[in-house]
Design a protein around this nucleic acid. Structure first.
Length: 216
DNA sequence: GATTGGATCTACT
DNA sequence: GTAGATCCAATCG
């Protein structure tokens, strides 16, 4: 059955995020993320996260061109959700870190489903448990997170983060996934021996060669 | 107006 | 298991 629901007293204070993302990301492992979309609590344990810095990080949105309307949230106060649309179909969920005025965030890449599994399974078209949230786009779909959650504080009923119930067994570190620049930096943290961690890269990373004739 | 960007999904070997 | 196509928005010139 489902483990006990986290107590409100376990909510992470927003100050938890007011520091370097490289410290926040590993600390998020084992923490519990829960959403209340449609009145149904869904969520689980964070098992994979990546750190993104500000202007000094080539893999960050903030590095490309400073602040833009899209990534402005990353410069805002810590402890807020930074949700952004990509791939035309998928969302990415980040937690804003660092003090207001400094860009920084932790990207949540994988979740171990715990609460509302039935609902999440429906949202994921009946996929097996291990694939409900084993990826950034998958996990937002499972939780029902969308652009409406952008800039939302992480201590509200709709979306909140609780501290770790128990320390994680073993934390692994590796290079980040899916980046064309800055991927060599080892800012990716995950729980070792956990089947819910995303596989990282599978297919070729850069198709690059598109439109080979194929007139239409 | 044109190009870039990255994860997921589906089909096939 | 592997490979390729898809898809929408933001950014750039």
């Amino acid at each position: 059955m489902e483990p006990a629901f986290p107590d409100a007293a376990d909510l992470l204070p927003l100050s938890f995020f007011d520091r370097d993302p490289r410290d926040v990301a590993p600390d998020l492992l084992g923490c519990r993320l829960i959403s209340h979309k449609g009145g149904v609590p869904t969520g689980g344990i964070i098992v994979e996260a990546e750190a993104y810095l500000g202007s000094d990080d080539p893999g960050s949105h903030a590095a490309t061109r400073g602040m833009t309307p899209r990534n402005a949230v990353m410069y805002g106060p810590p402890g807020h959700a930074y949700v952004y649309f990509t791939y035309g179909n998928h969302f990415m969920l980040n937690f804003v870190c660092e003090s207001e005025g400094t860009a920084g965030g932790a990207l949540i890449r994988a979740l171990q489903p715990v609460w509302g599994i039935a609902t999440m399974t429906q949202r994921r078209s009946g996929r097996p448990l291990t694939e409900l949230a084993s990826g950034p786009g998958k996990l937002t779909a499972a939780l029902g997170v969308d652009l409406g959650d952008n800039a939302r504080p992480l201590n509200t009923r709709d979306l909140c983060v609780y501290g770790a119930d128990a320390p994680v067994d073993s934390v692994g570190v590796s290079g980040r996934v899916g980046l064309m620049h800055g991927y060599e930096r080892e800012y990716r943290f995950f729980v070792k021996d956990n089947p819910f961690v995303s596989r990282g890269r599978t297919g070729p990373l850069r198709p690059k060669q598109r439109n080979e004739g194929s007139p239409k």
